[in-house]
């Protein structure tokens, strides 16, 4: 598949867009809450930035930013922490999206950190997902960001369920889950000391289903790997693992070609697809409604290590 073919926007959405119902009260409330949070953060911090990976949640974040600030330009740059272990379709999508919006994108690479010796790998082929933390914190320091918008949702994971919308980080980038600021009404406390920063999660109250229904309603393009496509995979520990140059099959495994799609898009070495025939956003919504597995449970090879692995990574400064 060439890159150009792979960045065709969400296909069948346009066909029935004319008849699409107004945004539900629920989504309208979520959208407005997210806009309000973004505007509050811009008003009360000195130098914010928005983390953009090309994944579905960060695509919704960009739409929220448009709703919050257009016709002005965004009052912050976009930042991508690149593991260099990417799906090429997603990177092509990222660049096209940034060009369309005419906004500024800063890319900092985990690979640069590895090559300079800043990041030490135990094995050359290990997941770089966890190492994004080092690059992210270095980037925050380099640009002196004091607020970072992220697309994380509370329904994703147990530790996230307890995280505030405005989440304080100390000068080491650490999250202290036992000492979080109470967050009441829509009154956000964005005050920090020099060297500290906040992570801001405007989509905290959204679920995976909300994200897809919003993408459908707003007719937003998403990278093609979210739709069903045929791909070489192996089955490993009950999950489908994509066979790529970075993730070759192991001895004794049978490589199958199967119709799959990705529910989440991350580092290629730790993101697993699910079997799917969904080729439109509406079909994805239907699948999400019927799914019996959570987004991360079905697709993230790195969250399975222990019940607390996300909490641990977050304490250390992860997204």
């Amino acid at each position: 598949m060439s890159l150009i073919d792979s960045i065709i926007p969400a296909r069948a959405v346009e066909a029935n867009n004319a008849l699409r119902a107004p945004l539900s009260k629920h989504l309208r409330w979520l959208e407005s809450e997210a806009i309000h949070i973004m505007r509050e953060t811009v008003a009360e911090t000195r130098n914010p930035a928005l983390l953009f990976s090309g994944g579905k949640d960060s695509i919704v974040m960009l739409r929220i930013a448009e709703k919050a600030f257009r016709p002005d330009r965004f009052p912050f740059p976009l930042v991508h922490i690149d593991t260099e272990h990417n799906f090429p379709e997603v990177i092509a999508f990222r660049d096209q999206k940034v060009a369309e919006l005419n906004e500024k994108l800063i890319v900092r690479s985990v690979g640069d950190g590895i090559r300079s010796g800043r990041i030490m790998l135990r094995r050359a082929d290990e997941s770089r997902n966890v190492h994004q933390t080092t690059t992210l914190l270095d980037t925050i320091k380099e640009f002196e960001f004091d607020a970072l918008f992220g697309g994380a949702r509370r329904d994703e994971e147990k530790a996230r369920a307890k995280e505030r919308i405005i989440s304080h980080r100390d000068e080491w980038g650490q999250w202290d889950p036992k000492n979080q600021r109470p967050e009441l009404w829509s009154l956000y406390n964005l005050r920090i000391h020099p060297g500290e920063h906040v992570r801001v999660f405007p989509l905290s109250n959204w679920t995976e289903l909300d994200i897809w229904q919003y993408i459908a309603h707003e007719n937003l393009a998403v990278p093609s790997i979210y739709f069903s496509h045929r791909r070489e995979i192996v089955e490993r520990k009950g999950m489908l693992v994509p066979v790529t140059e970075l993730t070759p099959s192991k001895a004794g495994e049978t490589v199958l070609t199967q119709a799959v799609r990705f529910r989440t898009v991350g580092d290629i070495t730790c993101t697993a697809p699910v079997a799917s025939d969904a080729v439109t956003v509406d079909e994805i919504i239907e699948e999400t409604l019927l799914s019996r597995l959570t987004e991360r449970g079905a697709t993230r090879l790195d969250d399975q290590t222990s019940d607390a692995s996300m909490e641990q990574r977050k304490k250390e400064g992860y997204f």
């Binding site: 008849l19 699409r20 107004p22 945004l23 539900s24 629920h26 979520l30």
Partner: peptide, 12 residues
């Protein structure tokens, strides 16, 4: 269409 209209009424 009817179900789409119901969808619009869904609140939180």
């Amino acid at each position: 269409l009817a179900s789409a209209q119901t969808e619009a009424a869904i609140d939180t």
